[in-house]
Design a protein around this nucleic acid. Sequence first.
DNA 1: TATGAATGAGTGTTCATTCAT
DNA 2: AATGAATGAACACTCATTCAT
Lengths: 222, 222, 222, 222
Amino acid sequence: MPDDPESTKPRTRDAGATQARILAAAKIEFAEAGLGGARVDAIAARAKANKRMIYHYFGSKEALFQHVLEAAYLDIRTAEQALDLDGLPPAAALERLARFTWGYYLKNPEFITLVNSENLHRARHVEGSEVIRAISRKFVAMTESLLARGVAEGVFRPGLDPVQLNITIAAIGYYYLTNRFTGAIVFERDLMAPQALEARLAFNIETEMRLVCRPDMLPQDP
Amino acid sequence: MPDDPESTKPRTRDAGATQARILAAAKIEFAEAGLGGARVDAIAARAKANKRMIYHYFGSKEALFQHVLEAAYLDIRTAEQALDLDGLPPAAALERLARFTWGYYLKNPEFITLVNSENLHRARHVEGSEVIRAISRKFVAMTESLLARGVAEGVFRPGLDPVQLNITIAAIGYYYLTNRFTGAIVFERDLMAPQALEARLAFNIETEMRLVCRPDMLPQDP
Amino acid sequence: MPDDPESTKPRTRDAGATQARILAAAKIEFAEAGLGGARVDAIAARAKANKRMIYHYFGSKEALFQHVLEAAYLDIRTAEQALDLDGLPPAAALERLARFTWGYYLKNPEFITLVNSENLHRARHVEGSEVIRAISRKFVAMTESLLARGVAEGVFRPGLDPVQLNITIAAIGYYYLTNRFTGAIVFERDLMAPQALEARLAFNIETEMRLVCRPDMLPQDP
Amino acid sequence: MPDDPESTKPRTRDAGATQARILAAAKIEFAEAGLGGARVDAIAARAKANKRMIYHYFGSKEALFQHVLEAAYLDIRTAEQALDLDGLPPAAALERLARFTWGYYLKNPEFITLVNSENLHRARHVEGSEVIRAISRKFVAMTESLLARGVAEGVFRPGLDPVQLNITIAAIGYYYLTNRFTGAIVFERDLMAPQALEARLAFNIETEMRLVCRPDMLPQDP
DNA sequence: TATGAATGAGTGTTCATTCAT
DNA sequence: AATGAATGAACACTCATTCAT
């Protein structure tokens, strides 16, 4: 039987493919229900794999969660590194980072839920991951060098802590999206309407620019 | 036997007290484990109440969760209303709101976890609460009038959306705290050290001030 | 406040009335759900009495069931004795008994369910009731004397066992009604339609007449 | 290890056998305690199966009850079809049916309790079963053709409703057996003594013959 | 007499995980 | 490599009954 890339049915005896299907299924399930709420049966069903395979390849539900988390962090950090901020003027680079972060959260909503779940469990699963530690360092370094460059060029305010900046960039997008359900009720507004998303992105960029840029380098208000 | 106010043992035959103990215990348990992870047995044990009482008074685990959520929202919104922002100059009022929000999250960490849990469940339990809807309106109105006053006095930038501002004020504190566990690993820093908390509060105030105030009204950098 | 006989609310401090309400409620609940399925809470609610009263007056759920059963047997046996079969010619008396039995089951459907429930429990609750034993003797004696009279008058066949006759009279009505739900499906017919009930009664009388009367004393078929 | 057909212990990894053991255990438990009184734990223990398997194979206690009921109806109806009434003269065929019905109830006492339980629940579980509807039709057809044949041969009375006849045949056996416990008290007689059973069967046949046969075709009384 | 609070043992059901093939 | 059967511990929830007033 020839390879059928369209099919979602298990290609019998293809270890790599089975693992990939399980990981993909687990990402969805964990994102929808959290670590505690996720069901191993549901993951197996979604992956069109035998439940036993999950244990064969990953050992336990928690270990699988760890794998999923690691992959998630790897994915966002890799995409960030590909932004090539160095090739842009500092202010433009900052905006690109801001847009990317927002866009990534929007396109990968599981990332947010996974991180929330992991924090509910006090980062137990991420703690031992050397991979995550390594890529995180590069992530901070990226903002650090961007800030330094901006200051050197006289565009950014000096003295800003790159960690605080990173946290803030993440926060203003992440919070809006993770709390979109209660937010819709508290603020009586459809926070996910296209216009609303656009407005939030603009507001976030404004926030970041005013935080980072020297006031005299800001575009004038109309 | 005289009243023993110190005792956590059930004061027999006191319906109100039992309900209160159950609610308090539930808040802790739900905050620690989320809705799905919370155990009714654990809540009963913590409340030093019989499990049956939970069902007697609240009907179900989910209904109890709803009660806890409602109480949580009521608490923060009530405290906000007590801030008396109207009695302060706009910038000072904004700072007070910023400090309060940060302080409330710090002192009531369950609030954050409860809200996270509710959003994992798509705000299903908060949806029908007219109480929450009502107090939320007053909350938005408060910021709205603060913004208007600041603009009128020439201190704040015009055109700011009070909802976006509220979200941002919440976001930059909430995110830092809810993700403090993964954050500690990603940023290789103890985010909960007293100094770190102080620094974050200062950074947040700075962020908000620059966002809201007219640049010429900001204190000069050294 | 004057007595309000219409009210179903408990007349405070009226022991007899409370007991009666509890018994009535229990009869309905036991009939609907059986001994095992009946809920003490439901009985209390239906009786608009405090649950504690059930235990005060009857001691336990099972004891209450026993009371209900005893009352039920007493009721049907008393009504039977009031038929005054002796005042009628034998064949007419037999028909009256047949009609009464059918009518009683129809008007008191709980009786059937109670008896079923008691038999599921191997007559444990009825076993010790001297009342039931006593009235039962009179019940059998009634048929016995009817049969004897019919034989003496040359209308009934000799040698019939009054116990078998009693059982048969009960059976052909009781079975039809207790199994009316599965019966409706098996026989694809609405067994409870007025016409169907009439037809069954006629069929039962026919069965009993042919069983008891001498063939030559039967009305000729058309 | 060789097959041990004597053993009631689970032959490991045999799905069909496990299902069969569960069904058999459930039949006994449901018959003894009714649907409500039956305990899933008890069924599992009796079946020497893990409780989880009951849910794996049958989904729920109620679904299991439905399976048991369906099997019970299938069993009696299949046995009836095997009676080959067509091969006998009408009166003999009627007697064979009467003897079979009585014998089946005696040998399968669970059947009666299951049907009682199902009627307590208003035939909820049997309602949707197309299987039961189909075999029931054949059952009625059987008596229908027997009656027609008997009339054609001049042995049976014309105009008898086969449904009423079926109900009566069932009733006079079923009622005697299902109410044997209260019956023993009411009639102060051991209704299950071998002689008593024999006498009842004879009485029932007599009842049915007199009901169905033309009076002149009945054997003369001594 | 009457009440509502409280309880412990149990219900049906679910789950992550392991076994046998 | 892959599968479906099997398990035991737990889980949310229920119930008859008793306690305190």
